[in-house]
Computed example of a mutant assay.
Amino acid sequence: CKHGGDLYVVGGSIPRRMWKCNMHTMDWERCAPLPRDRLNHTMVSVSSEDAIYSLGGKTLQDTLSNAVIYYTVKDNRWTETSQLDTAVSGAAGVNLGGTIYLLGGEENDMDFFTKPSRLIQCFDTSAQKCQMKPYMLPFAGCMHAAVHMDVIFVVAEGDSLVCYNPLLESFTRLRFPEVWSCIPSLWKVASCNGCIYVFRDKCKKGDANT
């Protein structure tokens, strides 16, 4: 998770451990560990609070979590806060104006097995409350997201790419060039210097990628 000019990395052989990399000096520094071990949780930077949020994920017992905690950079401390409406793991997460949008991932079904999720959960970092949107994403499961201006670009497997406008509550479907979508693959999306970049998570020889 990028926060300010630094990169924060969580997990590895000790899931609760967190490290910070100073991108100017490339030096690594150990930070305060998470309160408990968590896997596949979503990390989101909220610069207005100088904080990093960790939402959802799984316990080491493979149980989905609805926990929300945040790391205050200046205090080097984690704090537990209110919970998500629905426990999810592996969701995409972005910060838009102090509200964290948690998109998709996997959730529990009626039999407590996991299923791909189409949920949109909004966590207000000022009020420390979560709200579920009354509508759903046009696709489900593992996805990735990035913010540009006041819209959210969401990408999933195959050619599933949409532009989500929370203010208008609308989705605009975008399409990759045909050669890009010929082989289903998990894509990633990033916003940098006014542009949106889309690239494959895993590339093989001959695959089209940016």
Score class of each variant (00 low, 15 high):
Gln131Asn: 13
Arg118Leu: 01
Asp150Trp: 06
Thr125Cys: 07
Ser126Ile: 09
Leu119Thr: 09
Met136Phe: 14
Met136Leu: 10
Val147Arg: 04
Met132Trp: 02
Asp111Gln: 12
Asp150Arg: 08
Phe123Asp: 02
Gly141Val: 06
Gln131Met: 10
Met136Arg: 14
Pro134Tyr: 03
Lys129Ser: 15
Ala127Thr: 13
Leu119Asp: 09
Met143Ile: 04
Phe123Asn: 00
Lys115Thr: 11
Ile120His: 02
Pro134His: 03
Met110Asn: 12
Pro138Asp: 08
Arg118Val: 02
Leu103Thr: 13
Val151Asp: 00
Ala146Asp: 00
Thr99Gln: 13
Phe113Lys: 15
Phe113Ser: 11
Ser117Asn: 03
Leu119Ala: 06
Glu106Ser: 14
Ala140Tyr: 08
Phe113Tyr: 11
Leu102Cys: 06
Ile120Leu: 02
Phe139Val: 00
Met110Cys: 10
Leu103Phe: 11
Pro138Thr: 03
Asp124Thr: 06
Thr125Pro: 01
Arg118Lys: 14
Thr99Gly: 06
Gly141Trp: 13
Ile152Tyr: 01
Gln128Asp: 12
Ser117Met: 01
Cys142Asp: 15
Ala146Ile: 04
Met143Trp: 11
Met110Asp: 12
Tyr135Val: 01
Phe139Tyr: 12
His144Leu: 02
Leu102Asn: 07
Met149Pro: 00
Phe113Arg: 15
Glu107Val: 12
Lys115Val: 09
Ala146Arg: 00
Gly98Arg: 05
Tyr101Thr: 07
Lys115Ile: 06
Ile152Cys: 02
Pro138Ala: 03
Leu103Trp: 13
Pro134Trp: 03
Ala145Phe: 01
Leu103Val: 07
Lys129Gly: 11
Cys142Ala: 13
Val151Thr: 09
Asp150Met: 11
Val151Ala: 04
Phe112Gly: 05
Phe123Gln: 00
Lys115Tyr: 03
Pro138Asn: 06
Lys133Ile: 07
Thr125Asp: 08
Met136Asp: 12
Ala146Gln: 00
Asp150Glu: 14
Leu102Tyr: 06
Thr114Met: 09
Gln128Trp: 12
Ile152Pro: 00
Tyr135Trp: 10
Phe112Asn: 15
Asp109Tyr: 02
His144Ser: 14
Gly98Leu: 08
Met110Glu: 11
Tyr135Asn: 00
Cys130His: 05
Gln128His: 14
Gln131Gly: 08
Ile100Pro: 05
Leu119Cys: 05
Val151Lys: 00
Thr99His: 14
Met110His: 09
Lys115Leu: 04
His144Asp: 15
Thr114Cys: 10
Cys130Trp: 04
Val147Asn: 08
Phe112Pro: 02
Phe123Leu: 00
Glu106Lys: 14
Lys129Asn: 14
Glu107Trp: 08
Gln128Val: 06
Gln121Tyr: 06
Asp111Trp: 06
Cys142Asn: 14
Ile100Val: 13
Gln121Val: 03
Gly105Thr: 08
His144Gly: 02
Ala145Cys: 03
Cys122Ser: 11
Gln128Met: 13
